[in-house]
Design a binder for these strands. Structure first.
Lengths: 334, 334
DNA sequence: GCAGCATTTGCACACGCTTGCAAAAAGCGA
DNA sequence: TCGCTTTTTGCAAGCGTGTGCAAATGCTGC
């Protein structure tokens, strides 16, 4: 490796004929430098290709500017959309995002948070999985801010951002009934994450309040294939449902495809379908899926504005966001 | 903010009753520590919740462990899949990924690379856009390794990973002809990225070699909506094409949906369609898109193994990877 | 017990930066 | 020009690490 290393503030100082602190102050907003020396420094820096070393700066300031995003299944539409919104917002606020990919194994979120601590991240945002309490306590003790998105957890300290899953589920139940459906079903995965379960419980409860029963079917992970598998189960019952609420859009797409192409069942004429997330594919004309929109931009905005705030935040802060129903063509009427 | 900061090696040393260097050496692989003191240190570290400060370590070692991923349109299926593969591989190699979201504006990749320099990233991987030569030179001069994925550029220094777009385009041309198609079209976006243009040129050239002309239509950005728009153009011509090669799967999905639902044209009976990328949706039964698979895992593996290699790499290294044709149902026969 | 050797340990410096403090410079009114 | 205040500048300490070097310790074989 070329041992000619990065150029340091010292070299810039020499070239500009000023002290090293002058260089430092030039690149520190709010520091006192005369316009003249400032310009000399900037010129020298430009000529030498100098860039402030954020590792060293973070060391001194005890603020790295790094925010750690912890997420699994990045390739998934909803996840990647949220990821994009978050990195965008973070950049706008002068932060930089560190991305950690977790798998399903349970220790992996803990490992990710340890990594965040090692890099002295200012904050961590957790999109998948739920870390052990001992680890989150460690993060908080170290002054690291924590955001949990859609992880229905009641521990103190982190900001919790949740969607009103149960309320949405209730709304879609009445929509189904209004469309003339009577035999409701809920399609879920076996992942059992808080938001998925909240949708399930909310749907079942709302249906019961309307005097209807719900067939619940769960299968595999939360993806297209699972939607097909669930369709296999639901559409071969003696009493076939006439409306199915899928816990995510991916499940819904899989379900619809199986219903139409494998069982030749027409959506929405013979069966109504709804999803959750409003991924891009939901709007594609092969699906036209009626679904709830995750307010990804608002989630990102809430998360970022909370974690860049100067003042210490209230200990137990929860943000509950509303999911708008996007009406398309997978439910009759409307 | 709680001023009780992170715990340092000093404190661990005191608690363990050893010198600070012993702590340092315990966490440095290949350093000489006796098993006894090592255990004392580990116990103390565990008790205190100590984690090596990678900012400081990076400062000393001149190796941060950070790899910068520069990418636009993260929410897109192909991009997010590649992103997932890359972060995964990087983590396996003990690196951590820093994610920078660029927009279309041209300076934004340069800005991203500057950020990479500030954080003293060991390497940067560029998935979107092409930075100014002065910036890449700066990166290289600073000992930062660079990987360009699918950016057909001939500058020296970075590793270039490319797909054999032209060859793939030629293969699909003969597949169309073999399916009995004669009126070929190519659907592209106006993005004009190297790989998109290579596919276009390759397809046109191959068709010409087979004695056929190609209608080329370009519209907007590389997404579903553009596919629909291009369909609008192509399917209202007096002489409607009977085979269309779409530069990406997203374009193909949009095209197919428009053809089927808006123009009531049957795929593949009346028109054959092929795409590129093999995004997940291509395999969904509403599309069954015949397409070329981006070897994302291999791309990631090549990139990561190159940039973690100890020895200096050859100056002008290009990897050309093959895209397998995944045969589904959007082309007759097969 | 002791010479001879290998291993472990502590000291101290370096990495590139920020920042409090005091000295120097600049501005200003008389 | 001179006192005074305000701004700018340089010095030096410190952030938490890694590591070369020399001293100290532990082992082995007599």
């Amino acid at each position: 490796m070329s041992q000619k290393l990065f150029v340091s503030a010292q070299e810039v100082a020499e070239k500009a004929g000023v002290s090293r602190s002058a260089v430092s102050r030039t690149f520190t907003s709010g520091a006192s430098v005369s316009p003249k020396t400032r310009q000399k420094v900037l010129d020298a820096a430009e000529a030498l290709g100098y860039h402030v070393n954020h590792l060293a700066r973070g060391l001194m300031r005890n603020e790295s500017g790094i925010v750690c995003l912890i997420v699994s299944e990045i390739g998934t539409p909803y996840r990647s959309a949220l990821l994009g919104a978050l990195t965008q917002q973070l950049q706008n606020s002068g932060k930089i995002s560190m991305l950690i990919n977790t798998d399903r194994s349970d220790g992996s979120v803990d490992l990710a948070l340890r990594q965040a601590i090692r890099y002295r991240a200012d904050a961590s945002i957790i999109l998948s999985g739920l870390p052990d309490k001992s680890i989150t306590d460690l993060c908080l003790k170290n002054g690291q801010r924590l955001v949990l998105i859609n992880r229905d957890d009641d521990r103190e300290g982190p900001l919790k951002i949740n969607i009103d899953d149960a309320d949405a589920a209730a709304r879609i139940a009445t929509a189904f009934v209004r469309a003339g459906c009577r035999k409701l079903a809920f399609a879920n995965s076996q992942a059992g994450t808080p938001s998925l379960m909240a949708r399930e419980r909310g749907f079942v409860a709302a249906a019961r309040a309307l005097g209807l029963d719900v067939v619940v079917e769960r299968f595999g992970h939360t993806g297209y294939e699972s939607g097909r598998a669930v369709a296999q189960q639901l559409l071969t019952r003696k009493e076939r449902p006439d409306a199915v609420f899928c816990a995510t859009d991916l499940l819904a797409c899989g379900f619809m495809d199986a219903a139409r192409h494998q069982f030749s069942i027409s959506v929405p004429d013979q069966i109504c379908v709804a999803g959750f997330d409003d991924i891009e594919q939901a709007s594609w004309s092969s699906y036209g899926l009626t679904t709830f929109a995750q307010p990804v931009d608002m989630i990102a905005r809430e998360a970022v504005s909370w974690l860049v705030a100067e003042t210490a935040q209230p200990e137990n802060h929860t943000v509950r966001l509303h999911a708008d129903l996007v009406w398309r063509t997978s439910i009759r009427g409307g």
